[in-house]
């Protein structure tokens, strides 16, 4: 600017394209689960979870698989135990610490958590063809567990978590 001796002006008009209207570029998944329900005690244990995901180009298969498995375990918690118990009289959460709020421990995680990535080339989503993997890890597992409990017991539990008292 010193050399030219006058200000430089430029303007660009940038708008999103219509790719998102023309193409569906989401990540997709299908989840299957197998549970065991004790007929006397109504305790539910997850025996197996199988998930298949189409999520564009998988840049790092090892960490992607780990994130899937973490999501599966997290959703065992959602399905079977996690519950913020709110006292309706004052709105206070009565189990607001990890001593009373149960999240899954190793003993709750099934030995078999099978993760498959369906090969997918999406030329439209972005130049690398990659998609977000975070949220889809915790979509579907709780529903699959709920369906498996229904299949095992005939009881359709409409409210998570599926604790033993709801199956008695």
């Amino acid at each position: 600017m010193d050399r030219i001796g006058e200000p430089v002006e430029a303007s660009v008009d940038l708008k999103p394209g219509d790719a998102s209207k023309r193409f569906s570029m989401h990540a997709f998944g299908a989840v299957f689960s197998e549970v065991a329900v004790d007929p006397d005690l109504c305790e539910t244990r997850v025996r197996r979870i199988v998930g298949a995901y189409g999520a564009g180009r998988i840049v790092n298969p090892k960490t992607s698989r780990s994130q899937r498995i973490g999501g599966m375990i997290g959703e065992i918690g959602m399905a079977l135990m996690e519950h913020s118990v709110v006292d309706p009289r004052n709105g206070r959460v009565t189990n607001a610490n990890f001593a009373e709020y149960a999240v899954p421990v190793h003993a709750d995680a099934p030995a078999i958590m099978d993760v498959t990535f369906v090969e997918e080339h999406d030329p439209h989503v972005n130049p690398l063809g990659v998609k977000g993997l975070g949220e889809i890890a915790i979509v579907g597992v709780a529903a699959a567990i709920g369906n498996a409990v229904f299949h095992a017991t005939g009881k359709r539990v409409r409210e998570l978590p599926i604790t033993p008292d709801k199956l008695l």
Binding site: M81, V103, V105, A107
Partner: peptide
């Protein structure tokens, strides 16, 4: 025999 919400590290129902 201990019935509880999760398989380990939890108090009994």
């Amino acid at each position: 025999l201990k019935l509880r919400d999760r398989a380990s590290f939890e108090f009994a129902l």
